[in-house]
Design a protein around this nucleic acid. Structure first.
Length: 292
DNA sequence: CCCCGACCTATCACGAATCG
DNA sequence: CGATTCGTGATAGGTCGGGG
């Protein structure tokens, strides 16, 4: 780990004279940095423990009494029987993944890095277990359920979604691969992607154009046609919508068509410049300090 | 060859709109 | 009314090309 310290009047090689500030770097061995490392790696060093009261209450509610705490050590075990990665006579095994999980009710609260392996083993060993997982903010979009079931099948951008899938299928991706591809996209990005593709999908539908036309070696022509068609339809905030459409169609067509970089197609460039579709660069910081 | 500005994508954040 | 979805702006971080 590297620590960068800023202090005044310390002799060193990197001196910013005018400010009288010195910056120097120092190596801190991992052994002397266990607390910070444990936090950043969620490692076993100074481990964390699920609140036992809440856990008991939860287990009581689902009427499940596990007999083995598979990922613990002596200071944070929740049950008498446990596995520990550390040297420990009372633990029944050193590595829970190396013992069979059959015929025992398990409490599984694995380190984050082991979650995929644990799930695989759960399926393989057909276990009965309580598996405790962290609730990461970024994953909630895929993990949580909604009470608003009416939205299923009424997705506002379902044409865009369908177009994406069609394009992916036309490039010979199978449906499992497409599902995984979509699942890997940030939910927010996926929403905008669908929104950006929907006008293109509508353009194809209204003009009876085959989706595979987009995959040839001149997809930029179709994109500019679609943008022009979309512009003629008018409506509020047209320029912003065209900008979004261009951005996301660019990305998707670059992914799936024979043209690798639609953005750099001089046709698209010229058209977007003329229509003011380029995003104006703004200064990143409101104030520029002149340190000289 | 390096620096800098233009441009672009992905993501975060937040208020408004929508729906049960 | 609260949960969820949508629209939009801001920005980190990246590529690229022109000019010195």
């Amino acid at each position: 780990m590297l620590i960068i310290t800023i202090s005044q009047n310390i002799k060193n090689n990197t001196c910013i004279n005018n400010l009288d500030i010195t910056i120097y770097t120092e190596h801190l061995p991992g052994l002397k940095n266990s607390t910070a490392d444990a936090l950043s790696r969620l490692s076993w060093i100074g481990d964390y423990q699920f609140n036992p009261i809440l856990l008991n209450e939860a287990l009581h509610q689902i009427n499940f009494q596990p007999m083995l705490d598979a990922f613990a050590h002596k200071t944070n075990k929740q049950l008498k029987r446990y596995c520990s990665p550390q040297e420990d006579n009372k633990a029944i095994a050193r590595n829970a993944l190396n013992i069979p999980w059959t015929n025992v009710l398990l409490l599984l609260y694995p380190p984050i890095g082991l979650i995929p392996k644990v799930i695989q083993k759960m399926i393989r060993d057909q276990v009965e277990a309580v598996l405790i997982l962290p609730r990461w903010k970024g994953n909630e979009g895929t993990l949580k359920t909604t009470t608003r079931n009416h939205r299923y099948g009424k997705d506002k951008y379902k044409e865009g979604k369908q177009l994406y899938r069609d394009l992916a299928e036309l490039t010979k991706l199978d449906s499992a691969a497409i599902d995984q591809l979509i699942a890997g996209i940030n939910p927010e990005t996926w929403r905008k992607r669908r929104a950006g593709l929907t006008p293109l999908a509508n353009y194809l539908k209204q003009n009876n154009i085959n989706t595979s036309t987009l995959l040839g070696n001149k997809p930029d022509v179709e994109l500019v046609n679609a943008l022009a068609w979309y512009k003629d339809r008018g409506g509020p905030k047209l320029q912003q919508r065209m900008r979004n459409m261009k951005m996301h169609c660019d990305v998707v067509l670059s992914q799936f068509s024979q043209m690798n970089d639609i953005n750099n197609s001089s046709l698209v460039k010229t058209y977007s410049k003329g229509q003011g579709l380029s995003i104006q660069s703004k200064p990143r910081f409101p104030t520029i300090w002149n340190l000289q």
